[in-house]
Amino acid sequence: MLGLPPVTALFVFGGFVLAVILSVVFGLRFSDDSEEWSTLDDVFTPTGRRS
């Protein structure tokens, strides 16, 4: 891209473009209704009690 080797272009332009896309998605999906936020514990919910 623009005379840059692909890997360099990936870091130089790709990082910025991906950040912009993610920021737009974040802006569109962001909810300010709740004061809670997701945590890793939501992903790795304990399956049971230890005794």
Binding site: T8, F11, V12, G15, L18, A19, L22, F26, W37
Partner: peptide, 26 residues
């Protein structure tokens, strides 16, 4: 040339946005 840019800023745009995603609300 680009080496120092890639090293210090290549992933920093993503690092900054990720920081907002993870930290701003909490």
């Amino acid at each position: 040339g680009y080496a120092l840019y890639v090293m210090t800023m290549g992933l920093s745009f993503l690092g900054l946005t990720m920081a907002y995603f993870l930290l701003a609300k909490p």
